[in-house]
Design a protein around this nucleic acid. Sequence first.
DNA 1: GTCTCAGTTTTGGTATACCAGAATGGATTG
DNA 2: CAATCCATTCTGGTATACCAAAACTGAGAC
Lengths: 229, 229
Amino acid sequence: MADESLPQQLARQIRRDILRGKLVPGAPIKERDSASELGVSRTPMREAIRILAQEGLVYLRPSRSPIVAAPSIKEVVDQVELLILLETRSAELVCQFASDREIASIADIVRLMSERFDATDPLDMFEVDMSFHSAIAKASHNAPIAETHQRYLQRVWRARYMAAVQKRNRDKVVCEHREIADALAERDTAAAAHTIHGHLSHLVSDIRNALEAENAEQTGKARKSGRPE
Amino acid sequence: MADESLPQQLARQIRRDILRGKLVPGAPIKERDSASELGVSRTPMREAIRILAQEGLVYLRPSRSPIVAAPSIKEVVDQVELLILLETRSAELVCQFASDREIASIADIVRLMSERFDATDPLDMFEVDMSFHSAIAKASHNAPIAETHQRYLQRVWRARYMAAVQKRNRDKVVCEHREIADALAERDTAAAAHTIHGHLSHLVSDIRNALEAENAEQTGKARKSGRPE
DNA sequence: GTCTCAGTTTTGGTATACCAGAATGGATTG
DNA sequence: CAATCCATTCTGGTATACCAAAACTGAGAC
């Protein structure tokens, strides 16, 4: 299990805490405390925090504690905007360059998703959903595009998850995924780009709704507990 | 001058050494040596190396010295491919969302470039060239796009520089830049995207030529010095 | 009662010491 | 003479100690 460096392990641990909501946006991450809590020294923990910072999950402030990122709605939407751009282009590249093998494995993910439709934990289900999109980016055979896609997919993970659990529209998602996979299988560049673009465009409004709902709830709570924004 | 953290200063120093060719691709960067050379301890130097690693200028190897990146031609081309995607989209977004002020400052860069046409150090000239492209990405008002663009612009800096000094086609570059700036000024989305795309597509072949030339030279040298590849 | 300011504490930034794994070089053996 | 193996050394990874700046707190003055 140690094929991952210590800082990467630490980063992964904290990342999970952030994405699952154990660490709330705005919370400080003190390197001393976090380090001793996980039984390591400050040096690797420091490096772990840098990793998360460059992933955009925490903000670094000069001479201050890093804090968990609290992206505004516009920031998240902009990130999804970039994902749309990358994934649409990926779809085109997949049609041109991916092997039949790779395209088949993308279709497999759709199948897996529709089979386990309602049996699994929503979080597991969600990871499958994300892996579908990752697989497309990876099959583009353009490493920088795949890397960047992966990076921003991580970053909007939380927002997408919230959107997914709010709107229980899994059947529509599976249907759209299937359309995308079909277009890729036929190597129909235009159709693939179009269906991907449509699928992700829906996502933007879903995410916007989910985040607005959350914000409203948050400010409501804050007002109640006597700490108005 | 100290509004930049120590690791960032160190990273900048080494970055210049790499881009100017003082540190050749494949050369190891030992954190002890580099640190003492610049009179600092290993900790900030270590962090500086991480910065360069995430910029893609050096490769990190587990339990080995980091080395100066030696990207293959395909890797560089893929990176430029991503830049084309981002910058083309940026041009569209600029037409939609940028302020007149921002568009004007882009035009200013073109003017600056044509004025100082042949007077300046090629490296300075080149930084102006890069700042033109950065300015477009930044004016897209989409931070993730601008960040990613900046990241990969840094990464292909060396390849672009070599392409630029090899082909002394500065006048064509300035001309194309002017066309782009004009399209943006008129907020002509289609024209802006088209001119940007064309400009950068030329770059791909220039870079490919420059790198192939360099590779040929390298292997020639290696063979001569009795260390065939 | 509130504002201010100094002393203390907390925190990130940096330097240094220690450790383990990899590389290297030389001696030994076939 | 070549190949191999062991010891030395070199290098990155980690832990710890120290420093300076920012923040908190509490006492004092207005």
